[in-house]
């Protein structure tokens, strides 16, 4: 087991966590800053290029990157021995850096929950990947949009809390 906390393995896990996080938040920002604002400007006849081709592929990498980020991050915090103290916001050891990373971890966990249990099920309905009555589609699209916006909002303090811990 000591092999798993070898400094190089710890570094390697951090690298996997950061790469997964770039894939996840990069695609989240692509959806919010590029795809969603562009949809009204695309003629209806050309919209299937987004909804049938690009969005399903982007969503595939988006949701698996979210899961990968969470798993490597939790492994990392376990390797460094602060997983429980960080998840309890540093109150066990009165550590500001554990509180900081703990805030980031909780925001990340909430975001990953949104991806898998709100955004993805609703996007499947919107994109026609699962059967859904036409009248339910606007509600599903709205839920997916709000959860995606909420995640964009949380990505700002989440990344701050994650990175700021290294300042202390």
């Amino acid at each position: 087991m000591t092999f798993l906390t070898d400094p190089y393995i710890v570094f390697f896990v951090r690298w996997l966590h950061v790469m997964s996080g770039i894939m996840w938040i990069g695609l989240l920002w692509y959806f919010n800053f590029v795809q969603i604002p562009s949809m009204p400007k695309i003629p209806d006849a050309e919209k299937p290029a987004i909804t049938k081709v690009i969005a399903p592929t982007a969503l595939f990498w988006f949701r698996w990157a979210a899961l990968s980020t969470i798993i490597w991050g939790l492994i990392q915090s376990w390797q460094l021995g602060y997983i429980w103290d960080a998840l309890s916001l540093g109150f066990q050891t009165k550590s500001a850096s554990h509180m900081s990373i703990g805030f980031g971890m909780w925001m990340g966990l909430i975001m990953a929950f949104n991806v898998w249990f709100i955004i993805w099920p609703n996007q499947q309905k919107v994109l026609g990947l699962v059967a859904c009555p036409a009248e339910e589609k606007p509600k599903a699209a709205r839920m997916a949009l709000l959860a995606s916006r909420f995640n964009t909002m949380l990505s700002i303090p989440m990344s701050y809390a994650m990175v700021a811990v290294h300042l202390r």
Binding site: F150, L154, I156, A164
Partner: peptide, 30 residues
């Protein structure tokens, strides 16, 4: 006026506000 979360600009501003609040909590708790 829509809920601020429905606009991208609103969610960015709220995100920055939450960042400052989180930073102040962490900075002055311990």
């Amino acid at each position: 006026m829509n809920n601020p979360l429905q606009t991208l600009q609103g969610s960015i501003i709220l995100g920055i506000v939450i960042t400052v609040i989180v930073d102040l909590i962490v900075r002055y708790t311990f």
